[in-house]
Write a protein that binds this DNA or RNA. Sequence first.
DNA 1: AATGAATGAGCTTTCATTCAT
DNA 2: AATGAATGAAAGCTCATTCAT
Lengths: 235, 235, 235, 235
Amino acid sequence: MAPRADKATVKISPVGAWGAREAGILEVACKLYAARGYERVSMADVALAAGLSEGTLYNYFHHKTDLVLRVSLVALRANIDEAERIARTATNLRDGVRDLIAHQLRSMLAAPEMYRIWLREVKAAEGYGRSPARDALRSFSGHFTAFLDRWATDLDARTGLDRAVLRDLFYGGIEQIGWTVIVQNRARTFDIDAAALKLASVYLKAFGLAETAKFPKSAKPRTRLVKKSSLNATS
Amino acid sequence: MAPRADKATVKISPVGAWGAREAGILEVACKLYAARGYERVSMADVALAAGLSEGTLYNYFHHKTDLVLRVSLVALRANIDEAERIARTATNLRDGVRDLIAHQLRSMLAAPEMYRIWLREVKAAEGYGRSPARDALRSFSGHFTAFLDRWATDLDARTGLDRAVLRDLFYGGIEQIGWTVIVQNRARTFDIDAAALKLASVYLKAFGLAETAKFPKSAKPRTRLVKKSSLNATS
Amino acid sequence: MAPRADKATVKISPVGAWGAREAGILEVACKLYAARGYERVSMADVALAAGLSEGTLYNYFHHKTDLVLRVSLVALRANIDEAERIARTATNLRDGVRDLIAHQLRSMLAAPEMYRIWLREVKAAEGYGRSPARDALRSFSGHFTAFLDRWATDLDARTGLDRAVLRDLFYGGIEQIGWTVIVQNRARTFDIDAAALKLASVYLKAFGLAETAKFPKSAKPRTRLVKKSSLNATS
Amino acid sequence: MAPRADKATVKISPVGAWGAREAGILEVACKLYAARGYERVSMADVALAAGLSEGTLYNYFHHKTDLVLRVSLVALRANIDEAERIARTATNLRDGVRDLIAHQLRSMLAAPEMYRIWLREVKAAEGYGRSPARDALRSFSGHFTAFLDRWATDLDARTGLDRAVLRDLFYGGIEQIGWTVIVQNRARTFDIDAAALKLASVYLKAFGLAETAKFPKSAKPRTRLVKKSSLNATS
DNA sequence: AATGAATGAGCTTTCATTCAT
DNA sequence: AATGAATGAAAGCTCATTCAT
């Protein structure tokens, strides 16, 4: 039986431009997932928590997958918006990179279940390759490239690598580091800013931009509290 | 009635606490997962394909989760064994890093569904933190650290980062790059060796070991065929 | 698709916290159990016979246990209601006791499988002590006590026993007698009224109320047909 | 597939005359049932605890039912043996009845799970009527009748009831009283001897043998501690 | 006599999704 | 737009019992 929500076209179209109802549902779902763990939340649970009937919920979201996806995208959107702001307003390369790293780690550690959902239900979902999620992500993720382009002139020459690959290399590493912290339950004690500072150095060197590192005068790490121990890991 | 799993009964010596047929079952399950996609394979399917009754399957693997986990670990084990061999037999840092990267990418692209399963059913599974999978992974993953230690004396000083963090940074990046290739369906055309060569450079610089890069005479990239296009990514 | 349980949908007003269809399901289940024997009736069977899907059945009854319990309680309730009526309307002690006995025996012999279910799945079920069944039974079973109190002034003095013990003593004996008749397959030929008459005498004497037996003028045993043989038992 | 234990004929034959092995198994099973609750003990558990393989266990007991039944019968046998001894050695009617009651209650309260098993798996099992259990029980249960016959001459005349019915009436009542105590978890505080004394009176009166009650001089209740409260019940 | 792996029927249960109202 | 009862496929899992060795 095909979904018949052809009527409610406005809500369905692309991503974004949803009514207020949807936003509310998404918020509720997000909280529920975070609180109880995604696999322990049924559509009925979401409907109940949102004060809707199950049927009505399905007017807004065709599938369970639809719902998780949109929940994920809301989180991702907020994340990316902030990353873009950071990239745009950075006053130098080093600080920008450092802040992007710190922001990414902070996002993950602040909402680990959300990240897990993203990993499991979106990134590693069957058929992710052809999903709207990828399109959305693609459209979101230009900021890093733009940021690099603004501060580094000849990235290609320095690394021989496409910007998109660099982005994967960068975010892949950061996310894995963050994930290990989550998995090891060290989120509380992990010193994000200290780590970000060091990681920024590493990535700048990686990209052959270390010389920029020579004038880190403007670099104002948000916190000076650099506990070296906070970077130990054993995963 | 005697087992009639004449098909795939390789009978490797007792793995774990269970009988000898395990290996055969794991192989069958692995193939099935790869062919049909994990979520479309039921325990009954596996049992059937292995020439076993469902009950017997449950004699070997307590849960569906148990089975995926073990399938994943077999793949991971093979992967790591080879990585350890590479790390052990490397004749210089640059080549070693390059070969590790190439191996990792090759593993992923050769068995993308396996990697997806690893991502989704193990790494991002509920309670992974406390699962035996993590223990296994932990015990497996010393080779990279050992490798670095052999070739680079003062890594800590150069990066300010724990070796475990460096490992996450390294493999996180590589895996994300590989995943993008998979998702974009470019596995066929992707030039692994060319990418590995460049990425090795990047990571060596990242770790402050670029000077080692000064005698890359022995560095014989397996292939010179560097198609620039092969590294484009947009995931 | 609308429910098509056209068969047995009596639709008594909402029993318990669930919808109105309950009563119909209970009736169907009861018949099924009686016909085929409880252990040979699966939830699927009940669903089918009730014209429901299995899932729907589980909307009404959480467990198989839930269902048996409720089926049992319906039967018990009817039984008790009638017993209460008898106790309330009895015009003298002897007749009342006799009629209670006859009613109890008649109930058992009329629905032996139901009684067996009660015995096995409720009374002797694991954790019966803490089950709602006991609460229900407790709340149901005041009639006997009330009845005794109305007709006999100083029961305690006469027997030295608590009324609740007397009730167990009374019903335990009667039920065992009835059970033996069932087990020996003598239900058809057993003369309930004759037995009840004699048993009433015995219990009155037991309770020290035999003097009441001195004016049994009003005692009109429903039948005079006392086949002595009908009381033989050897269980 | 029919059981092929035709070989081991000796063990199978009637009930009684079992080898030492069986006795050991029965003992183990009994303990296991008592400790864990019958429904939580599988045949495999019994085999393990008995130091046997499952297959071997089945050489001794054809069915699970077979096993429970025999476990029950062992307990019952011991119970009956003692009851017979009591009946045989009683020096007067009142004491004999009292001691039989006390013994029955004591047996139940000492092994409530065993009684539950008896109730559920034997007495209320499907097809109990045709089972060897009934035959066994029948052969066991002559002591009460014999006892009555020894002390009371004209029971039939006094009650109009068959001895077998009297036995049901007697034991049914006692067992129900004991069961209530078990279910209400009052086994620890219940004063068996006090109850037995009073109940004996009641049953003697019931059977029209109260005059015998006139010389209860010899009645030496095992304990004088008659807590009236111990007989309260509310089940 | 003993073993214990293999069997496989059977059961309960969940939940995403639909659709008559 | 909203409801929520109904759906029913699917899956995981247990355990008494068998039988080749």
